[in-house]
Design a protein around this nucleic acid. Structure first.
Lengths: 152, 152
DNA sequence: AGTGTTACGTTGGGCAAGCCAACGTTGGAG
DNA sequence: CTCCAACGTTGGCTTGCCCAACGTAACACT
């Protein structure tokens, strides 16, 4: 009978913090994600999506686009290269740079992650209707526009 | 002239993921927070706010309210106890439980964190007006209502 | 020319958060 | 009395974010 006891609310001071709410939404999103794929697929997705949309990029540019540190980009790109999802070559015009390019296997992998991410997203936002999802998206975009995408 | 070059946008696939947006907002919030206090103050704030609003709680109840694992609660409570911000005693009615209570120093500490959190919050949401902040808050609440606050 | 500055990629490490597994203790239900 | 569930604790793993240092390469300056 009474399983209606599950109404434990977080304290009001916490509920009032947008930063805490965002963090909560983020980790719940991570949980949904983990149901469909390993968590590392999230960084893979970010990098591959950038390469697919913008073409060949240096690792530093990748970091700037995605808000990631250079060292973290280095690790992700190495993982993706090991998995055969992208190509890395020295830039002939500037030999300091690594030109990173997505390849065919990478595109397939990207589409696969996209499908799983869509499923996770649907679960995360299940309590919102279409209009509300759009509003939430627009508001988050606006918050992020107020801050440089840079790492640190 | 053109310093307008700072318009590096993240890829559309990423911008479309609410989970990624929330994560981004969360870490930017963490950066704002770090300008005013050590990051650990965030967990302190959560625990103290719960104790202040709901009175004496067991650590397990704290975890359920806040969406934290028991082991993490254990560490936070120990830290707060060491700092003299709360009292921990065995529950006489159920000696498995630790009854945790906020004390006077804890309340002062809580108010101090609250002030800093408000400053960080203002910076985080600087690009939204009052109406928009309210809408964003309401939408995030609605998303979270669709998911149990429990840890995992 | 040579010099200094800057950007790049790499490595290593620290820290916070979330999660899982195990243990001993205690309470309650059968 | 026995079995099961909840509690608190410890230890460990992973991701994400961040800082510092190194060697290489491009660039500016004089």
């Amino acid at each position: 009978m009474g399983d209606a006891n599950d109404d434990l609310q977080p304290p009001a001071r916490l509920r009032a913090l947008t930063s805490w709410q965002a963090s909560r939404v983020s980790t719940i999103g991570a949980r949904m994600t983990a149901k469909y794929m390993p968590l590392t697929a999230r960084s893979d997705f970010a990098v591959l999506a950038a390469l697919e949309e913008y073409g060949a990029l240096s690792q530093a540019d990748l970091g700037r686009r995605l808000g990631l540190d250079r060292n973290d980009v280095s690790g992700i790109v190495t993982r993706l290269q090991t998995g055969g999802h992208l190509d890395r070559q020295a830039d002939p015009d500037d030999r300091r740079r690594n030109l990173v390019t997505i390849n065919q296997a990478g595109r397939r992998y990207l589409e696969q992650i996209q499908r799983n991410a869509d499923k996770a997203q649907a679960e995360l936002l299940s309590s919102l209707d279409e209009d509300e999802r759009g509003q939430l998206h627009a508001l988050l975009v606006k918050v992020l526009e107020g801050h440089k995408p840079e790492p640190a």
